[in-house]
């Protein structure tokens, strides 16, 4: 048990050797993590682990897959079967893992550049096929790991190192794309909305199919500083002020800019058969009893 320090003596009878509940989900020998002061990624991890407890997810059957980036480091810090893959390819790796061992719950956790620029094509097709994956995107509007370059989510007008006079490209609205591509569950929160986010993770764990959760998170070191938007806490305060909760909102209307409303909530929740369910059902029709659904790998138990 690691050291905890009660700050002010609250006159407890005995000081229990308590530890932050999140710690039991982390590879503690790897702490402290690499994220900057006020970076929102760690906050999302709290909410994620809270949902693991609340949803009662079996941790030995849960695998997490990340791409490359600051967010991509999440996999390495969680004490789960965890895979830190290549830039943009977390989703196809996760697809293979899930189909090879369908009893696993597979979560993809990565950044907006990773999932939507270099990995955008994989996102579209995994959603279309309804692969049974939960995809978590921490959207900080920039490329954090490489030093603050233009991302596919960068709002118009925002300055980035590779858009030094401000961005003139139209950004992507991630929930809109997820819905159009066929995701069965689509939500957006910000790191201000910690309770809602934890609840949404929990709801997503109770569903099957391609589930997408976008989380707006401050990157104080690069995005906020460069755009003179203050520290991480200022970024979160702005989320608080600009956010409106609108469950079921039309995803065509919820694009993001440097100003204006940030619509958050659960936008899409519509079940349909996963890729594997569809294949099984289809081949059962074609082949009847002769069809052999995928087994659990070639591992010989014991």
């Amino acid at each position: 048990m690691s050291e905890t320090t009660p700050l002010e003596d609250p006159n407890l009878a005995i000081q229990p050797p308590l530890d932050n509940p999140v710690m039991s989900f982390l590879r503690q020998e790897r702490m402290p993590h690499i994220w900057c002061p006020g970076c929102g990624i760690g906050t999302t991890v709290n909410c994620f682990t809270r949902a693991l407890t609340d949803a009662g997810v079996g941790l030995d059957r849960l695998a997490i897959v990340s791409g490359i980036g600051c967010t991509g480091r999440v996999a390495g810090y969680l004490n789960l079967d965890s895979f830190h893959t290549t830039h943009g390819r977390a989703i196809p790796f996760a697809t293979g893992l899930k189909l090879a061992r369908p009893e696993l719950e597979v979560v993809v956790y990565s950044g907006d550049g990773d999932l939507f620029a270099i990995g955008g094509n994989h996102f579209l097709h995994a959603a279309r096929r309804n692969q049974d994956l939960m995809v978590v995107c921490v959207n900080n509007f920039t490329y954090g790991m490489t030093g603050g370059q233009l991302a596919p989510t960068t709002p118009e007008g925002a300055s980035q190192t590779t858009a030094p006079f401000g961005n003139f490209e139209a950004p992507m609205s991630l929930p809109y794309i997820a819905e159009a591509a066929g995701a069965v569950f689509v939500a957006r929160w910000t790191v201000y909305h910690v309770r809602q986010l934890a609840r949404t993770f929990k709801e997503a764990f109770r569903r099957k199919g391609f589930r997408f959760i976008e989380i707006l998170a401050p990157c104080p070191t690069l995005f906020l500083r460069r755009n003179r938007l203050g520290d991480g806490v200022d970024g979160v305060r702005v989320y608080k002020e600009r956010s409106v909760i609108r469950d079921g909102a039309d995803t065509r209307t919820i694009g993001l800019g440097m100003e204006g409303e940030i619509v958050v909530g659960t936008f899409v929740d519509r079940p349909r058969p996963t890729w594997l369910e569809a294949m099984d059902a289809y081949y059962q029709k074609v082949f009847g009893d002769r069809y052999r659904p995928v087994g659990g790998g070639s591992h010989v138990e014991g």
């Binding site: 229990p16 710690m23 982390l26 402290p32 760690g42 709290n46």
Partner: peptide, 27 residues
């Protein structure tokens, strides 16, 4: 417990006394 949910560095967490007692007993 909100402070703990927010803390990006896992450096703080809050709990109700009831929860603390229950956890202590379990421990």
């Amino acid at each position: 417990g909100l402070c703990g949910l927010y803390c990006p560095d896992f450096a703080i967490f809050g709990m109700r006394f009831q929860e603390i007692e229950a956890m202590r007993e379990r421990l």
